[in-house]
Design a protein around this nucleic acid. Structure first.
Length: 425
RNA sequence: GUGCCUGUAGCUCAAUGGCAGAGCGCGUCACUGUGGAUGACGAUGUUGUGGGUUCGAAACCCAUCAGGCACCCCA
């Protein structure tokens, strides 16, 4: 066997079957986003490295981005996320946009990581953002888009949960515990790791980052307090809105959610599969009030989330929620080619039907009829037309219904109606 | 960057040191102007690659490449 040139590691081929699933996902996202009045937009796939220098996570830019120098000497990045591009686009038109802006996007992103379950190097992301408003109600409405998407695809709060926290609330607690600002990132990462380490090594880790035994005890109490959110006006108002929208069950306060990206300033959330088979967050989001300033514009508050296509695909597959038979054959009609002499007649017939608005495939060479019928069957055609010497002579077309096997002889002038009736029957 | 596992026909996998196989798929025919179903026949291949051990290697050892999974991090 000859060796086919391999695909690039971490990329996926979208054969028509997989493409159909992707389009279904895209369409569902579009419908949900549009039901909340969000408009679709797209940013460049290439951005300057500088754009991410400001506020994306250190590791995201330095270790995980595809960076190259173009022929003009500029440092270019294949976008690893969308939010900085969005901030740039907003900042560029900050004086002409009609706020609040509600925008959504679905496109490809790249991160140089070791591929494994739920993670590829090239992936698609659904981004949904609202900018220009600072209210917790806008946080809630934005997150509601997400919960509505879950509902729409058939996921229940028993299967997926959106865990929510607030960085300002955490900062208040850190203040109360006298944890200095410069130590908070490492404390956050310590909190984030609680479920991933044994209690002993987690305690040990806490000491290593400079927490006193009293602070550790207080932190443990805080993390165990499921009602801590009531001390946050923002979270209280957030929950009131998702409750009013009938989506409260999808949300749960979770003090250990802190998120890796540096630009989040308030509400933060992640969605997880409840069963725990898929140990990877489905999406992440939150409020970022300084990002447009960080890319050089005025500070415009924003909130948004990003969901990758890979993990949600795993979830939907696990719960059997991916629709079957999405692969569509666009052409319900196949015109066979009887022999070399009749070939042009068949092509003419196909062309007539196309001009009348039908999607038609004409077999591209004069091979045996059984082969052509077999092909018609496999592509899922409903109707097959035969135009042999007899038909050409008498001005007829043999029309076979592949669904029930019935065949009629139609006059050439009325062929369009005959075919249409058969397709719609 | 660290660790573990796996590479055999187009696909899914057998063959536990002794003749490389099955199912599915594919091709031809039964059916020379008609698909699906059935049956008959047929082709599958440098066992990822390179070396070593052995009378003998798909299997054991080493190297290498590729893929998967788990860390890390994250969508």
């Amino acid at each position: 066997m000859k060796k086919v040139v391999p695909s690039v590691k971490g990329t996926r081929d979208f054969y028509p079957e997989q493409m159909a699933t992707r389009i279904w996902l895209y369409n569902t996202m579009r419908e949900v986003a549009e039901s909340f009045g969000y408009q679709e937009y797209e940013a460049p796939l290439l951005e300057s490295l500088e754009l991410y220098a400001a506020k994306s996570g250190e590791e995201l830019v330095k270790e995980q981005s595809y960076v190259f120098t173009d022929r003009g000497g500029s440092e270019i990045t294949l976008r690893p996320e969308l939010t900085p591009s969005l901030a740039r686009m907003i900042a560029q038109k900050q004086n002409e946009l009609n706020f609040p802006v509600r925008w959504w996007s679905f496109g490809p992103f790249w991160r140089y990581e070791r591929p494994q379950k739920g993670r590829t190097r090239e992936f698609f992301q659904w981004n949904v953002d609202m900018l220009g408003v600072r209210s917790p109600e806008s946080d809630a409405e934005n997150a509601a888009v997400l919960a509505t998407f879950f509902q729409r695809v058939g996921l229940t709060p028993q299967q997926v949960i959106i865990k929510i926290n607030n960085r300002r609330l955490m900062d208040d607690r850190f203040n109360a515990l006298d944890i200095p600002v410069e130590r908070r990132p490492s404390v956050s990462s310590w909190i984030d790791r609680r479920d991933k380490m044994s209690p002993e090594s987690w305690m040990e880790f806490g000491k290593d980052i400079g927490l006193s035994p009293e602070q550790i005890t207080k932190m443990k109490e805080m993390l165990a307090d499921r009602e801590l959110w009531m001390q946050s006006t923002e979270l209280t108002r957030f929950f009131a809105v998702v409750d009013a929208l009938g989506l409260r069950q999808f949300f749960e306060f979770e003090p250990s959610i802190v998120r890796g990206l540096l630009y989040y300033t308030g509400t933060v959330f992640e969605a997880w599969e409840v069963g725990g088979d898929i140990k990877r967050s489905i999406l992440g989001g939150g409020r970022y009030d300084n990002l447009t300033r960080d890319v050089g514009g005025d500070p415009i508050p924003g909130v948004g989330f990003a969901m990758g296509d890979v993990v949600i695909g795993l979830i939907l597959e696990k719960y059997g929620l991916l629709p079957k038979d999405l692969t569509i054959n666009p052409a319900p009609v196949l015109v066979t080619v009887f022999n070399e002499e009749c070939l042009l007649e068949s092509f003419k017939l196909a062309s007539e039907l196309r001009r009348a608005g039908l999607n038609v495939v004409c077999y591209p060479e004069a091979v045996k009829l059984p082969k052509q019928f077999k092909y018609a069957d496999r592509i899922g055609a409903k109707v097959t037309l035969v135009l042999g010497p007899e038909e050409v002579e008498k001005g007829l077309v043999a029309v076979k219904n592949l669904v029930n096997g019935e065949q009629v002889s139609a006059r050439r002038e009325t062929i369009l109606d005959t075919v249409r009736n058969m397709i719609h029957a």
